[in-house]
Deep mutational scan, measured.
Amino acid sequence: NCLEGLIFVITGVLESIERDEAKSLIERYGGKVTGNVSKKTNYLVMGRDSGQSKSDKAAALGTKIIDEDGLLNLI
């Protein structure tokens, strides 16, 4: 459970895995996936064609922004 207690938001199109697979992977390792960035969000996983508003909010809140490889490296 290397992601225990961590909260993730996924945005954009992921290249190597589907969004549902990424969500399942995060949950399997103890993390939680939500739909919107908040002060409780630990990581924003940004894929291709992701919206600017979520990354702006993450930056404003100090949320770590990672890509798909960054997510896989956490596991």
Rank of each mutant, 00 (worst) to 15 (best):
Y29I: 02
G5I: 01
M46A: 12
G51W: 09
E15W: 04
I10F: 12
L72E: 05
D20M: 09
I7G: 07
I26V: 05
R28S: 12
K57N: 08
Y29F: 13
G47V: 11
R28G: 09
N1M: 07
E18C: 11
F8A: 00
E4N: 12
L6E: 05
G31W: 01
V37F: 06
N36Q: 14
E27V: 07
C2A: 04
F8R: 03
T41K: 01
S50P: 15
I7L: 11
L74Q: 01
G51S: 15
R48V: 06
S24R: 13
K40M: 08
D67T: 13
S38V: 01
S53W: 10
G31D: 02
G70F: 03
M46T: 12
V37C: 05
C2Y: 11
G5V: 01
D69T: 14
L44M: 08
T11W: 09
T11A: 11
A60N: 07
I65D: 04
E27P: 00
N36C: 11
G12T: 00
L14V: 03
G30S: 03
L44D: 01
D49T: 09
M46K: 13
F8Q: 00
K39W: 08
L3P: 00
E27K: 09
V37S: 01
A60T: 09
Q52C: 12
N42H: 07
S16T: 14
S55R: 15
V13K: 15
L6D: 03
G12K: 03
L25Y: 02
G5N: 09
D56P: 07
I26Q: 00
S16I: 08
L44T: 03
S53D: 15
S53Y: 13
L25N: 00
N1I: 05
S50T: 10
I17P: 07
K57S: 10
R48N: 08
L6G: 01
G62S: 05
G12C: 02
L72S: 04
L71A: 01
L61H: 08
V13R: 15
S24A: 13
I66L: 06
S53L: 14
L61A: 08
E21M: 06
I7H: 14
E15C: 07
L71V: 02
I7P: 03
I7R: 13
L14T: 05
E21F: 04
D67F: 04
V45N: 00
N73A: 11
I26E: 00
V45L: 09
D56Y: 10
G70D: 09
R28M: 10
K40N: 10
L71K: 03
L71P: 03
D20Y: 08
K39V: 09
S53P: 08
L44I: 14
R19D: 06
K39S: 10
G35K: 15
L72R: 12
K23N: 05
G62K: 06
D56F: 08
L6K: 15
E18H: 11
M46G: 03
L14D: 04
V45D: 01
D56I: 13
Y43C: 13
G31H: 00
A59L: 13
S24V: 11
A58Y: 06
S53Q: 13
L72I: 08
F8T: 03
R19M: 14
M46C: 13
E18Y: 01
S16C: 08
R28C: 05
A59H: 13
T41H: 00
S24N: 11
L74I: 05
T11C: 09
S16H: 15
E15T: 10
G70H: 06
G51M: 13
T11N: 10
T41A: 06
V13L: 09
S55I: 15
D49W: 07
S38F: 01
A59M: 13
A22W: 05
L74E: 01
T63L: 09
T11E: 14
I17T: 08
G5M: 02
S24H: 12
C2N: 05
I17G: 06
I17E: 06
K23A: 09
S53I: 12
L6T: 06
A60Q: 12
E18M: 04
T63H: 05
E27D: 03
L61Q: 08
D67A: 03
R28I: 04
D20Q: 11
F8M: 02
S16Q: 12
E18N: 14
K23G: 03
G5P: 01
Q52M: 12
N73S: 11
G31I: 01
L14S: 04
D56A: 13
S50H: 14
I26C: 01
A58H: 07
G5K: 04
E21C: 06
A58P: 05
R48S: 08
D69L: 10
R19E: 09
R28N: 05
G51L: 13
A59T: 12
N36V: 12
V9A: 12
K64W: 03
R48H: 07
E18T: 15
D49S: 11
S55P: 13
E21V: 08
D20H: 13
I26T: 00
A59Q: 09
I75E: 00
N42I: 01
E21G: 06
R19N: 14
G35S: 14
C2V: 04
G51Y: 14
E68P: 07
S50K: 09
D20G: 11
L3T: 00
G35A: 14
V33F: 05
I66M: 01
K39A: 14
K40R: 11
E27F: 01
G12W: 02
E27T: 06
A59D: 11
D20E: 13
L61R: 07
I75C: 07
G62I: 02
S16F: 08
N73M: 06
A22Y: 09
I7K: 10
E18R: 14
R19A: 11
K40G: 09
V13C: 11
S53G: 13
K23E: 11
D67I: 00
I7V: 11
S16D: 07
R28W: 05
L74A: 02
G47D: 06
K64L: 05
A22H: 00
S50E: 09
